[in-house]
């Protein structure tokens, strides 16, 4: 009976949380965290959150452009909600991780969460983020059963033992080039209240 209930719950249509508008040029706290950003254009905050301490914004839908904020992932926590904890557990952020480990954590989390083998970190470089030493990286991936190549950028820093990160991805055709400047404007004005 337990298996039946599990399938039933998984198959039932999920309740949808409302999406809300994020106004341009107004500072806003993100991912239930002390991190604030000031976008230079309108975005939509998605009602569905990818994890407990994260949230996503989009302009045209998460398949076309998506910025995700990770607001202080604690040690021994995952970036996303587990999809299959028993057979495919997500990797966990650890207090012993170095900044250079973060892109690999992100890559393996994406591979499992999206169930895709087509995910590659393309570049890794040092960066300043939230006033701290950080890491910037770029990546490419494709979702399963889809022929759209996607490009992404990410920037992360570890502040007081917690992981703060902002990522952006979009189809390589048109959308990445059009919307990456709006993502970079968000990064440039990201701040953290201490």
């Amino acid at each position: 009976m337990r298996w039946f209930c599990a399938i039933l719950l998984a198959a039932a249509q999920p309740a949808l949380a409302a999406n809300t508008l994020v106004a341009a040029h107004v500072p806003v706290a993100v991912a239930r965290s002390p991190m604030t950003v000031t976008p230079d254009c309108e975005w939509n905050r998605m009602g569905a959150r990818p994890g407990r301490r994260s949230e996503s914004w989009t302009i045209d839908g998460d398949g076309l452009n998506e910025v995700t904020f990770y607001g202080g992932i604690e040690p021994d926590r995952t970036l996303f909600r587990e999809v299959d904890k028993h057979s495919k557990p997500l990797p966990r952020f650890s207090r012993t991780m170095l900044l250079t480990d973060i892109p690999a954590l992100f890559e393996s989390s994406y591979r499992i969460a999206l169930n895709t083998p087509v995910m590659t970190i393309e570049t890794i470089a040092s960066a300043r983020f939230l006033g701290e030493k950080g890491v910037a990286f770029t990546y490419t991936y494709a979702r399963v059963d889809e022929e759209v190549r996607r490009r992404g950028d990410g920037v992360a820093a570890i502040v007081d033992g917690r992981l703060f990160m902002i990522t952006f991805d979009a189809p390589a055709i048109f959308f990445y080039d059009r919307d990456a400047p709006a993502y970079r404007a968000i990064i440039a004005k990201a701040a953290i209240a201490r």
Binding site: L16, T20, N44, G47, G61, G63, L64, P171
Partner: peptide, 20 residues
């Protein structure tokens, strides 16, 4: 992908994006 976004985020009023 584009048409899927239109369906999910504009045609389906319950999940419409505010900017749409």
């Amino acid at each position: 992908v584009l048409a899927d976004s239109v369906m999910r985020y504009q045609f389906f009023a319950g999940n419409r994006l505010p900017s749409k």
